Amino acid sequence: MSGYILFSSEMRAVIKAQHPDYSFGELSRLVGTEWRNLETAKKAEYEERAAKVAEQQERERA
């Protein structure tokens, strides 16, 4: 899992709640824009969280 995927899943729900009429493409475009504009430190937080999720998933598969 990547930081972007984690961010995307969280942001998509927020944007969808604010704009229920937006298409999947419109939501994706907005999520991508939000990610590109996100501060580097915040991106790093998402990357760290994603790494922890990936480690947990790997342990569960073992």
Rank of each mutant, 00 (worst) to 15 (best):
M1T: 08
M1I: 09
M1Q: 05
M1F: 12
M1A: 11
M1C: 06
S2A: 06
S2D: 12
S2Q: 07
S2C: 07
S2I: 03
G3P: 03
G3E: 00
G3M: 00
Y4E: 12
Y4F: 09
Y4S: 03
Y4Q: 04
I5A: 15
I5R: 15
I5N: 14
I5M: 13
I5H: 15
L6G: 02
L6A: 03
L6R: 02
L6N: 04
L6D: 03
F7R: 02
S8C: 15
S8H: 06
S9M: 10
S9Y: 05
S9E: 15
S9F: 04
S9V: 06
S9T: 13
S9R: 15
E10M: 02
E10V: 01
E10P: 01
E10I: 02
E10A: 02
M11I: 09
M11Y: 12
M11E: 04
R12Q: 12
R12D: 05
R12H: 08
R12M: 13
A13G: 11
A13H: 14
V14G: 11
V14A: 12
V14Y: 07
V14F: 10
V14Q: 11
V14N: 12
V14D: 06
I15N: 02
I15D: 00
I15W: 08
I15Y: 11
K16V: 04
K16R: 14
K16T: 07
K16F: 04
K16P: 00
K16A: 13
K16S: 11
K16Y: 05
A17N: 06
A17W: 04
A17Q: 11
A17L: 08
A17R: 11
A17M: 09
Q18R: 14
Q18C: 04
Q18L: 05
Q18E: 12
H19N: 10
H19M: 03
H19R: 05
H19K: 08
P20L: 02
P20A: 04
P20S: 04
P20W: 00
P20C: 02
D21G: 12
D21Y: 05
D21L: 04
D21V: 04
Y22Q: 05
Y22R: 07
S23C: 05
S23A: 05
S23F: 01
S23N: 07
F24D: 15
F24A: 15
F24V: 14
F24W: 12
G25T: 14
G25S: 14
E26K: 14
E26P: 01
E26G: 03
E26D: 06
L27F: 06
L27S: 06
S28K: 09
S28Q: 10
S28D: 13
R29I: 04
R29F: 05
R29S: 08
R29M: 07
L30F: 07
L30Q: 14
L30K: 15
L30Y: 06
V31S: 03
V31H: 01
V31K: 01
V31F: 02
V31W: 00
V31A: 05
G32N: 14
G32F: 11
G32D: 15
G32T: 13
G32K: 15
G32L: 12
G32C: 13
T33P: 02
T33D: 13
T33A: 11
T33F: 06
E34V: 06
E34Q: 14
E34S: 11
E34P: 00
E34K: 14
E34H: 10
E34W: 06
E34A: 14
E34R: 13
E34Y: 13
W35Q: 02
W35P: 02
W35F: 01
W35L: 00
W35K: 02
R36C: 10
R36T: 11
R36Y: 07
R36E: 15
R36M: 09
R36S: 13
R36I: 08
N37W: 02
N37Y: 05
N37T: 07
N37C: 06
N37F: 03
L38W: 00
L38C: 02
L38F: 00
L38Q: 01
L38M: 11
L38G: 00
L38K: 00
L38P: 00
E39P: 15
E39L: 03
E39T: 15
E39C: 13
E39G: 12
E39H: 10
E39D: 15
E39I: 03
E39R: 05
E39F: 00
E39K: 07
E39N: 13
T40C: 11
T40K: 09
T40H: 13
A41H: 11
A41F: 06
A41P: 05
A41E: 07
A41I: 06
K42H: 05
K42E: 07
K42Y: 02
K42C: 03
K43Q: 09
K43P: 00
K43I: 04
K43C: 01
K43R: 13
A44P: 00
A44L: 14
A44F: 07
A44H: 10
A44R: 09
E45V: 08
E45Y: 06
E45G: 05
E45R: 06
E45K: 07
Y46P: 00
Y46K: 01
Y46T: 01
Y46H: 00
Y46D: 02
Y46R: 00
E47L: 04
E47C: 09
E47Q: 08
E48T: 12
E48R: 13
E48F: 09
E48L: 11
R49P: 00
R49D: 01
R49E: 03
R49Q: 04
R49G: 01
A50K: 00
A50I: 01
A50P: 00
A50D: 01
A51P: 02
A51D: 05
A51M: 12
A51T: 10
A51K: 14
A51W: 05
K52C: 07
K52Q: 10
K52E: 09
V53M: 15
V53H: 11
V53E: 14
V53R: 10
V53W: 10
A54W: 10
A54N: 07
A54Q: 11
A54R: 11
E55K: 10
E55H: 13
E55L: 11
Q56M: 12
Q56L: 10
Q56P: 08
Q56R: 11
Q56D: 14
Q56G: 12
Q57I: 13
Q57P: 09
Q57T: 11
E58Y: 10
E58R: 10
E58I: 08
E58K: 10
E58M: 09
R59A: 11
R59G: 13
R59F: 12
R59K: 15
R59V: 11
R59H: 12
E60N: 10
E60D: 15
E60K: 08
E60L: 10
E60R: 09
E60F: 07
E60V: 10
R61A: 12
R61S: 14
A62H: 04
A62P: 11
A62V: 07
A62M: 00
A62S: 14
